[in-house]
Amino acid sequence: MENTVEVDPRAAAVRRKSSAGRVLQKVRKHYFLYVLLAPALILTLIFKYVPMYGAIIAFKDFSPIKGIMGSEWAGLKHFEKFLSSPNFDVIFMNTLKLSFFGLIFSFPVPILLALMLNQVRRAGVKKNVQLFLYAPNFISAVVIVGMLFIFLSPTGPVNHLLTWITGEPLMFMSEPKYFRWIYILSDIWQGAGWASIIYVAALANVDPELHNAASLDGANLLQRIRHIDLPTIRPIMAIVFILAAGGIMSIGFEKAYLMQTSMNLPASEIIATYVYKVGLQSGDYAYSAAVGLFNSVINVVLLLTVNFIVKKLNEGEGLY
Results as ranks from 00 to 15, higher is better:
residue 5 V to F: 14
residue 5 V to R: 13
residue 14 V to L: 15
residue 14 V to R: 15
residue 17 K to G: 15
residue 21 G to P: 01
residue 22 R to E: 09
residue 32 F to S: 15
residue 36 L to A: 06
residue 37 L to C: 11
residue 39 P to T: 04
residue 47 F to I: 11
residue 47 F to D: 11
residue 51 P to N: 13
residue 53 Y to A: 11
residue 55 A to N: 10
residue 58 A to F: 07
residue 65 I to V: 14
residue 66 K to Q: 15
residue 68 I to H: 07
residue 68 I to C: 10
residue 73 W to H: 13
residue 74 A to R: 00
residue 76 L to V: 15
residue 82 F to M: 13
residue 89 D to L: 12
residue 92 F to H: 09
residue 98 L to M: 14
residue 98 L to Y: 04
residue 99 S to V: 04
residue 100 F to N: 09
residue 105 F to E: 06
residue 106 S to A: 08
residue 107 F to Q: 02
residue 108 P to I: 04
residue 109 V to M: 07
residue 110 P to S: 05
residue 110 P to Y: 00
residue 111 I to E: 01
residue 112 L to H: 07
residue 113 L to S: 04
residue 115 L to D: 01
residue 126 K to T: 04
residue 134 Y to H: 11
residue 134 Y to Q: 11
residue 137 N to Y: 15
residue 138 F to Y: 13
residue 142 V to R: 05
residue 143 V to T: 08
residue 145 V to M: 04
residue 145 V to A: 06
residue 150 I to L: 00
residue 150 I to Q: 01
residue 159 N to S: 02
residue 168 E to P: 00
residue 168 E to N: 07
residue 173 M to P: 00
residue 174 S to T: 10
residue 182 I to L: 11
residue 183 Y to I: 06
residue 184 I to T: 08
residue 185 L to V: 15
residue 198 I to H: 02
residue 210 L to I: 04
residue 212 N to A: 03
residue 220 N to V: 10
residue 222 L to F: 14
residue 224 R to A: 04
residue 229 D to L: 02
residue 232 T to Y: 02
residue 234 R to Y: 11
residue 237 M to W: 01
residue 237 M to V: 03
residue 239 I to V: 10
residue 242 I to C: 00
residue 247 G to A: 04
residue 247 G to H: 03
residue 249 M to L: 10
residue 251 I to L: 14
residue 254 E to K: 05
residue 254 E to W: 03
residue 257 Y to K: 10
residue 258 L to E: 00
residue 267 A to W: 06
residue 271 I to D: 05
residue 273 T to F: 10
residue 273 T to R: 07
residue 278 V to Y: 10
residue 280 L to R: 09
residue 283 G to I: 09
residue 284 D to M: 12
residue 284 D to G: 01
residue 285 Y to D: 04
residue 286 A to I: 00
residue 287 Y to T: 06
residue 291 V to E: 03
residue 295 N to R: 08
residue 298 I to F: 08
residue 303 L to C: 03
residue 304 L to Y: 09
residue 306 V to Y: 01
residue 306 V to N: 01
residue 307 N to D: 15
residue 311 K to E: 13
residue 311 K to Q: 15
residue 313 L to T: 08
residue 316 G to V: 07
residue 320 Y to R: 10
